[in-house]
Amino acid sequence: MIETDGLSKRYGLRRAVDGLSLAVAPGSVFGFLGPNGAGKTTTIRMLLGLVRPSGGSGRIFGHDIVRERAAFLPRVGAIVEAPAFYLFMTARNNLRVLARTAGLREPARIAEVLALVGLAERADEPVRAFSLGMKQRLALAAALLGRPELLFLDEPTNGLDPAGTVEMRDLIRRLGAEGHTIFLSSHMLHEVEQICTDVAIVRHGRLVAQGTVGALLANSAALLVEAEPLPLLAAVAERMGLAAAPAGPRSMSVQAGPELAPRLISALVHAGASVFQVTPQRRTLKERFLELTED
């Protein structure tokens, strides 16, 4: 559905995106993660043709993102960064402008998407009077206007209150379940972990990890080992080729999956250590994200 090969963007000497190669499968809810300034929005802008790549290539639905935009744009909906609308116009008229720009001939669809995001009753109010959360919902309505197969959502929960965030998460999940492919850039890692099937993590414009959420977290599995003496625990872990880090007064976190627990316990006992407890730890996406993106 989306493929990029060495996609790059330079601004002067600064590389905003550096040789990014992504693959997004049809029907997936793809989380695109990275710290501020990692190149997420620039990547989305390149994919949508707002920004011209400095190098590499990209394809959406098999069409080149620079030369064949007309072929894929009608099948794509997008929220790019903060929601932007003509503040002097009503929500309905804003959507009318966008529908006409896209060449859509389905006036009833405007009322439909407004109802879908819960703005039907505010449709004829100027957007100037809308809160950020309402603008965010209007942006989603705009993205859904053309019944897109692929949705780019760049921080769609920004500015939403907790109830709005849950509502948006449910809506995205529902759209994913309906078969839309969703490319979701977000800082809400807990949300991403709950919604997304696949993730990619970028740092300084480079891809540092990509895969299913399960695989990404499985690779980061650890065992919390409570044992004494700790230096002996560290030595045994090192002998087994496992990374270990202190996690408490008499415990260490050992980078190993649960399948290695019996071997580790046996080695510790054999070495003369007292083992009190071994607990498999499943890291959260947030922990994995911080591990991969911290300097």
Partner: peptide, 8 residues
């Protein structure tokens, strides 16, 4: 950005 993501 709204216009350019709807018209090529």
């Amino acid at each position: 950005k709204n216009l350019l993501t709807r018209h090529s």
